[in-house]
Nucleic acid binder design. Structure first.
Lengths: 146, 146
DNA sequence: TTACTACTTGGAGTATGCTCAAAGTCAAGT
DNA sequence: ACTTGACTTTGAGCATACTCCAAGTAGTAA
């Protein structure tokens, strides 16, 4: 099931459920708490962590940032600003805007590479149809493709 | 200057020029050779590496694969197939096709995240225009945004 | 009471991908 | 002859992000 649409119980979740709902491992969640990426989680009377629905959504958002190239340290900084409240709204705005631009550039680069790969695939198909007889058909390295 | 359009001298290049033309450092190029990602480069009589134009183009292609998420080990495997000649064409085709699909999924995910970020930016603008008076305005974690 | 399961903490180890430093070679310039 | 600069090799070290393990606790079930 797709994580982003998997629905989250309103009741508080354990670390194992949190792991399932976020796609992380329990170890990774504990690790994130240790390095200050996630705040010290509430504990049940027996000491076990528990998470609210909002916290799970928060982690999912973070995982989106991570999946789009943000480092743990950058996320940690962003979250620190969040904890500081509304006074940091404009700085957070700037960060997210910059990250959005980063993503735009990344998409452009991926599309460029898709074109290069498609060019190469086309070249391979031609070779297969029409096996080449000339001695020089360099591939990487050195390749003919950019 | 953009690396992919920067033109490459026809004459053989030194490692420092190769570094400049590929965006890698000299250390990284030597490291790649060490781990078998690049073949043992030709040496000049004094032992210095030299690279042909085609080799530079090959490295650039590799860097595209890397920039789009392929690991060094996967690239090493691909290049090994290349060295084995035309008999591996169909396997290489499959690899590149699969990588192209990976890129397509990656683009989709990036675009999804852009939407989430834009939603959040819009939310921030609303907050700035119309500072909120209610006590509960959670941000990550736990956040209101997906 | 014993066993089992789900957690806890703290610390060590691992994978990937570089990055740097030490010591040496070679050729050109003064 | 000596210095400078661009390289060489080998090996160690580092940053990021986990991942695993050992030892312990708390609650439940037989």
């Amino acid at each position: 099931m797709d994580l982003t649409t998997q629905n989250i119980p309103d009741t508080v979740t354990s670390i194992s459920q949190a792991a399932e709902l976020t796609g992380l491992t329990e170890d990774t969640i504990r690790y994130y708490e240790r390095i200050g990426l996630l705040p010290y989680a509430d504990r049940k009377p027996n000491g076990h962590r528990h998470y609210s629905k909002d916290q799970i959504l928060g982690i999912r958002f973070l995982m989106r940032l991570k999946a789009t190239g943000m480092t743990l340290e950058q996320m940690r900084h962003y979250l620190e600003l969040t904890r500081q409240g509304d006074g940091t709204l404009s700085e957070r705005y700037t960060i997210l805007e910059a990250h959005n631009d980063t993503i735009a550039h990344e998409i452009a680069r991926l599309q460029e590479t898709q074109e290069v790969i498609r060019y190469k695939l086309r070249h391979f198909r031609e070779l297969a149809e029409n096996p080449n007889t000339d001695a020089y058909d360099c591939e990487e390295p050195g390749s003919s493709g950019q």
